[in-house]
Computed example of a mutant assay.
Amino acid sequence: MFSQTHEVFSRTAQQAANAVISNYSTSFALATRLLGSNHRHHIRNIYALVRIADEIVDGLASDAGLETKEQYELLDGFANATRSALRFGISDNLIIHAFAQTARTTGIAGDLIEPFFASMRADVSALSEPPSSVRSFSPDEHRDYVYGSAEVVGLMCLKVFLCAQNRTPAETEQLEFGARQLGAAFQNVNFLRDLADDSLRLRRSYLTADSRLTDADKTAWVIRIRRQLAHAQATFSLLPKDARTAVRSAAALFSALNERIAVTPVERLYQERVRIPNVVKARLASKAIVVTARERRP
């Protein structure tokens, strides 16, 4: 039984996490509203933690004038505070406190958190490159980065969805594969959509060991993302029913983004960000609701 002090602080932490997703991603904010009440606040807590870490390495620290060493110190301080919160169950950082509540409830542990912060550290090293250079990721570096920055986030969300659920080892293995594939697809779509910002402002080239993608490279990635999404979609019916609509809606949005990217010349991607109109987002969410409503529980 927690004291009123703890309850008020935890409620405030949850409100802070809600504000992060509302201000940073209308798409994911919409998707979380489609989740069951048992899952919704946990997914928002995960999003808030990874978003703040991402902001630290995507310019927040460097814009404040921090040198590379100081950027590492800021990120490592955030990571260490997260580790402490998992150990003690509380944090004086509202976002970390909210995440710790979710992690301790659902079983999220260091095996998922450590790869995430390792990928965030890789982004600090990219920012430390000379201003005239672009940090290119080899295939192996891309694989490791995507696992830490996106696939483990999918696995964290799966921990939430399966909390107090009974699944066979085979079903759990399928769902984990689907979660990793969905996370990778989301990240790779983001890489294509954000080519302009990544290359010009952040000086990163995640999708090629060269400094710039060709149209043939882009097409290959679009095909790869389609395959990743298909693998993920094959596992959606194994999810709890009150999670399926939200996951389907998010997957449909990224599939739509991928198809817009498919018909967009790569040079244009290096100049502007592809977007999905709100009316299309609403239509995709409505379709996800209908599909799940017609579906039987496994």
Rank of each mutant, 00 (worst) to 15 (best):
T219C: 08
L155V: 06
F191I: 07
Q4S: 08
L35E: 04
S286M: 08
Q4T: 10
V290M: 11
T219A: 13
Q101E: 07
R227D: 09
D242V: 00
P130W: 13
L74H: 03
L182C: 11
T32S: 01
T208P: 08
R268Y: 01
V8P: 02
L127D: 09
A220V: 04
C157M: 12
A64G: 04
R297M: 14
M120D: 00
A209N: 10
L238P: 03
L257P: 00
E272Q: 15
P139K: 04
Y145T: 14
S84I: 08
P130R: 04
E55M: 06
V20N: 00
E7G: 04
T5P: 00
R201T: 07
Q14K: 08
F28T: 11
A293V: 01
A185D: 04
T235G: 06
Q181T: 05
R83P: 03
D63Q: 14
S37G: 02
K281Q: 11
V189I: 10
L35D: 01
D76M: 02
E267N: 15
R51W: 11
N188P: 02
T172Y: 03
L86I: 06
Q174Y: 06
D92F: 11
L60T: 10
R11E: 15
Q15N: 13
L30P: 08
D194K: 09
A243M: 05
R121S: 11
A29I: 05
L30A: 15
L60C: 09
R226T: 00
H231V: 12
P298M: 02
L94M: 12
F161V: 02
G89P: 04
H42A: 09
L74C: 03
V280P: 05
N166M: 04
I96K: 13
H39S: 02
V8H: 10
N258E: 11
S133D: 15
Y47K: 03
